[in-house]
Structures are given as structure tokens and as C-alpha cells.
């Protein structure tokens, strides 16, 4: 049990958040978003990790008593990856369209003008 993965998760989350807040380019912003999501993968895997244990694949020849890391969080991480890919793909498609319509992908220049 080490603190490192938890610190890494926090770092990824915060650095991604900083990128999203300060971004001047929507593609950059979407990538920062996926950096934030990587923090959740690291966190989930860290929570399920047991040092000295095997991968959770039980076939003939692998003694059960060795034990395995928690397979639940690995399933959760996989689901999370699928979700994230869908989201990023959709967002990037929207960014491409906005580039075609507005000619800019700078969030500041896309500011609502009618106020």
C-alpha cells in the first residue's frame, strides 16, 4: 500500500482541471478533460490493487490461494474507458463543426455577444 497512486490521481485531476479552466483552444480543452478522466482510472485501479497478488484470471494451473487483485474495479475502469472514449469522440465532433461554422475554437471568442 503506497500513497503514490493516490497522489498521482489527485495531480492528474487538478492539472486537467487547470487546463480546462485556462484553455484557449477547444481541442486542448477536450484533451484536458480526458486527462481529468485518467485520474479516475488511476484511482479505481489503486483502490483495487493488492501487492503480491496476481491478475484476476483464474484458469487451470493457477492456484486460487495466491489470490488476486480486485477484479471489480478493473471492470469499472474498463466501463469508464468506454464511456470516456464516447464522450471525447462526440466532443471532438462538435468542435470540428464549431470550427466550420464560427471559424474559431477559442472559448473566449465564442463568448455570447448579446448581453
Amino acid at each position: 500500500m503506497t500513497l503514490l497512486p493516490y497522489l498521482l490521481a489527485a495531480w492528474l485531476f487538478l492539472v486537467g482541471l487547470y487546463g480546462v479552466v485556462t484553455s484557449r483552444h477547444l481541442v486542448h480543452l477536450v484533451i484536458c478533460l480526458s486527462v481529468m478522466q485518467s485520474a479516475t482510472y488511476v484511482l479505481l485501479l489503486a483502490i483495487g490493487y493488492r501487492s503480491g497478488k496476481k491478475a484476476p484470471i483464474f484458469t487451470a494451473g493457477v492456484p486460487v490461494k495466491v489470490g488476486a487483485v480486485d477484479p471489480v474495479v478493473q471492470a469499472l475502469t474498463l466501463t469508464d474507458v468506454v464511456v470516456s472514449v464516447t464522450g471525447v469522440a462526440l466532443l471532438l465532433a462538435l468542435v470540428v463543426e464549431i470550427w466550420k461554422r464560427a471559424g474559431t475554437v477559442d472559448p473566449d471568442r465564442l463568448r455570447r455577444k448579446e448581453l
Binding site: L33, A39, V73, D80, V95, A102, L110
Partner: peptide, 27 residues
């Protein structure tokens, strides 16, 4: 498109927070 992007970005971050909370609870 802009409305959709704002919606997607803010809600995705909300979802990450939710997932982080769930992970901590599972831990």
C-alpha cells in the same frame, strides 16, 4: 454547438466527481 459543448464539459466534470466519490466509497 456551443451550448452542447458547455453542457458536455461541465457535466463530464460533474460525472468525474461522481465517479471519484463512488471509487472512494467502494474503497
Amino acid at each position: 454547438l456551443q451550448g452542447a459543448i458547455n453542457f458536455a464539459v461541465v457535466n463530464s466534470i460533474g460525472a468525474f466527481m461522481l465517479l471519484t466519490g463512488i471509487a472512494l466509497l467502494y474503497g
